[in-house]
Computed example of a mutant assay.
Amino acid sequence: MTAIVHSSETVTLVGAGLATSDAILRCLKIAPKLIAADGGAQHCLDAGVMPEAVFGDLDSLANISALPAEVVHRIEEQESTDFDKALRSIDAPLVLGAGFTGLRVDHYLACLNTLVRRPDRRCILLGDTDIAFLLPPHFQMELAAGTRVSLFPMGLVEGTSDGLKWPISGLSFAPDGMVGTSNEAEGDIEISVTAPKLLMVLPEAELEAATEALLACSSRWPALDR
């Protein structure tokens, strides 16, 4: 797996799901380098911005003629989603993804699957109400007391926590077992997990703070051999 886009700064990635111009521009304030996944390029053009690269099988990109030929990277295989094709092609400290939620539940679930399958590619998915990202081995973040903190497992995983109303220490999480939705922060939180299997879901207002927290986090998962 060889990356095509290399950046020392956070990158904005836009998909073909629900992505308002405001959401795209919000991400660009944090991460000015703009990449699109297939039909997400049209969202970029509608927002008045040109992506530096577009990845995908291009089956949902109707207005391809509006893009310079050199920015378009067609990846023909059908074994992965456009989000996966784009994310694995980006080498950056963090990716902010807009346009990967809404419209179809199966597409969003596939994106969450990709977060777990690509644990070395740090990414925050921005929706209209929430953000979601894979927890690194050890994570710290400043949150106001009462902030909703949901933890959802994508596989068997355990962990420890400080700062949560309901601590997770001693619990085993699994998609078909215990999950951790609708927990609350009592203030700053600190969480350690045993495997790259636990997603954190926060209110969308925490995008900027979560970006800072992940960039400050030196604890990383290695790439999986897939």
Score class of each variant (00 low, 15 high):
Cys27Val: 04
Leu207Cys: 10
Leu45Cys: 08
Ser89Asn: 09
Pro51Thr: 04
Glu212Val: 13
Val157Phe: 04
Asp106Met: 09
Ala132Leu: 06
Leu96Cys: 06
Glu9Trp: 00
Leu164Arg: 04
Ala195Trp: 02
Ala223Asp: 13
Ile64Ala: 11
Ala210Asn: 02
Asp22Tyr: 00
Ile168Trp: 05
Val71Arg: 06
Glu77Met: 04
Ala31Phe: 05
Met178Asn: 08
Ala16Ile: 04
Leu67Tyr: 00
Ala216Ser: 15
Leu214Gly: 04
Leu156Arg: 14
Ala98Tyr: 03
Asp130His: 14
Ala144Gln: 15
Ala31Cys: 09
Leu112Met: 15
Thr20Ala: 07
Ser172Glu: 13
Leu34Met: 10
Ser7Lys: 02
Asp59Ile: 10
Phe133His: 12
Val193Cys: 07
Ser192Leu: 04
Gly102Thr: 05
Pro153His: 07
Glu77Ala: 11
Pro137Asp: 08
Ile191Gly: 06
Leu134Ile: 07
Phe133Ser: 13
Asn63Leu: 13
Leu214Asn: 01
Ser8Phe: 00
Cys111Ala: 15
Ile4Gly: 01
Thr101Pro: 00
Leu28Arg: 15
Thr211Trp: 00
Ser218Gln: 14
Gly159Met: 09
Pro196Ile: 10
Gly187Phe: 04
Glu190Ser: 15
Leu45Asp: 11
Gly56Pro: 00
Leu25Asn: 10
Pro32Tyr: 02
Lys197Ala: 15
Glu52His: 07
Asp106Pro: 01
Phe55Asn: 04
Ala223Met: 14
Gly146Cys: 12
Gly187Lys: 08
Phe152Glu: 06
Ile189Cys: 07
Leu18Ser: 14
Ala16Gln: 03
Leu18Met: 07
Thr194Gln: 01
Asn113Asp: 15
Asp120Ile: 04
Asp128Gly: 11
Thr114Lys: 03
Gln140Tyr: 03
Thr20Arg: 11
Pro196Gly: 05
Gly170Phe: 07
Thr211Ile: 05
Gly159Phe: 03
Glu158Lys: 11
Pro93Tyr: 00
Ala205Glu: 11
Asp38Ala: 12
His6Arg: 13
Glu9Leu: 03
Cys27Thr: 06
Ile64Trp: 01
Ala213His: 09
Glu212Ala: 14
Lys197Glu: 15
Ala66Asp: 12
Glu9Lys: 12
Glu70Leu: 06
Thr10Leu: 02
Asn113Gln: 13
Glu206Ala: 12
Ala41Cys: 12
Asp82Trp: 01
His138Ser: 15
Leu135Cys: 12
Leu215Val: 04
Ile90Ala: 12
Asn113Pro: 01
Ile124Trp: 00
Thr129Ile: 07
Glu79Met: 04
Asn183Thr: 06
Val72Tyr: 02
Arg74Cys: 12
Leu34Tyr: 08
Asp22His: 06
Ile131Pro: 08
Gln42Val: 10
Cys111Gly: 14
Gly187Ala: 09
Val193Pro: 03
Ala195Val: 05
Val193Ser: 04
